[in-house]
Write a protein that binds this DNA or RNA. Structure first.
Length: 274
DNA sequence: CAAGACTCCTGACGGC
DNA sequence: TGCCGTCAGGAGTCTT
């Protein structure tokens, strides 16, 4: 579920509540939520540590600890982080006891989310691409030309660009007027500039709206839903009129992912029947 | 190297 | 009301 704007919102809201606090004890209720090291070493390694910083890298959140290690997590589809004295969390998978009688809870209905305790960030994230908020057209153009892939799966590939998911790829491609099946190597320099700007603007607007919520799952740590779902141009709007041109938004499947496209704003590449 | 199938999980929703 | 199929904001692995 959470993509870059949702993780950024969570990090911003939790930062003042977590930085400087101590982790007293860790309880793991679903062992596979811990990616590494072992559950035992995870709990032992965190007990007594102070949180020095909270930040984001792609869709990962990172708690830097006072011993130089980091608690790194990925929320995948349904993960959440909540802080409170008695957080109401029916699906708690990992519970961290903090000082001052509070708890940090990692809850996750579908159990896809993962936490890791690592000495170096890339042990948890692997080799991931650059941050999309700093994306520049010249780099993007060269990177697209170096691959021969359809735009949508490439933009979803975290080793190419770190942070975009299904919603924001569809929204960014619509904003840039590019079809998700367009071949990456055929994107012109000018189109790459437009796409880079569309990605930055889409994400910036989504962060300003505190992300997107359209079911019971994503809530900011303050408990509020995001508001960006009200600004969706195409995502989840199949069969409805495009807000820019009035054409009917189409839903197709690309790389096993639901994909939303305006046939007029995003002309299909050669050989693709719209 | 690229792309598709399948897997990990649970809950919500539509149809019958 | 109940059962069943389908779908979901992610990503790793294996096969073609």
């Amino acid at each position: 579920m959470p993509e870059l704007p949702e993780v950024e919102t969570i990090v911003r809201q939790l930062r003042p509540r977590l930085v400087g606090r101590r982790l007293l004890r860790v309880e793991v209720r679903w062992a596979r939520s811990i990616a590494r090291p072992s559950v035992r070493k995870f709990c032992d390694g965190l007990a007594g540590r102070r949180i020095d910083a909270l930040r984001r890298r792609g869709k990962f959140f990172v708690l830097d600890l006072d011993d130089g290690c980091a608690l790194v997590g990925h929320l995948r589809m349904t993960g959440r982080l909540v802080v409170g004295r008695r957080p109401d969390e029916a699906f708690a998978r990992v519970v961290f006891e903090l000082d001052r009688g509070e708890r940090l809870v990692f809850s996750d209905v579908r159990k896809f989310g993962r936490l890791a305790l690592v000495a170096r960030l890339d042990e948890a994230t692997g080799d991931i691409g650059p941050e999309p908020l700093e994306l520049q057209g010249d780099w993007l153009h060269a990177a697209l030309a170096a691959r021969r892939r359809r735009l949508k799966p490439l933009l979803l590939d975290q080793s190419f660009l770190a942070g975009l998911g299904n919603i924001y790829v569809d929204e960014s491609l619509h904003r840039a007027g590019l079809h998700p099946l367009r071949s990456s190597e055929r994107v012109t320099r000018r189109q790459a500039d437009t796409l880079a700007r569309a990605i930055r603007e889409t994400l910036t607007n989504a962060i300003a709206a505190e992300g997107s919520s359209f079911d019971t799952f994503y809530r900011t740590p303050e408990g509020r839903p995001g508001a960006f779902q009200d600004e969706f141009a195409v995502y989840g709007r199949g069969g409805r009129p495009c807000r820019s041109c009035g054409a009917t938004i189409r839903r197709l499947v690309v790389g096993q992912r639901g994909t939303h496209v305006c046939p007029k704003c995003q002309p299909a590449p050669r050989g693709v029947r719209p």
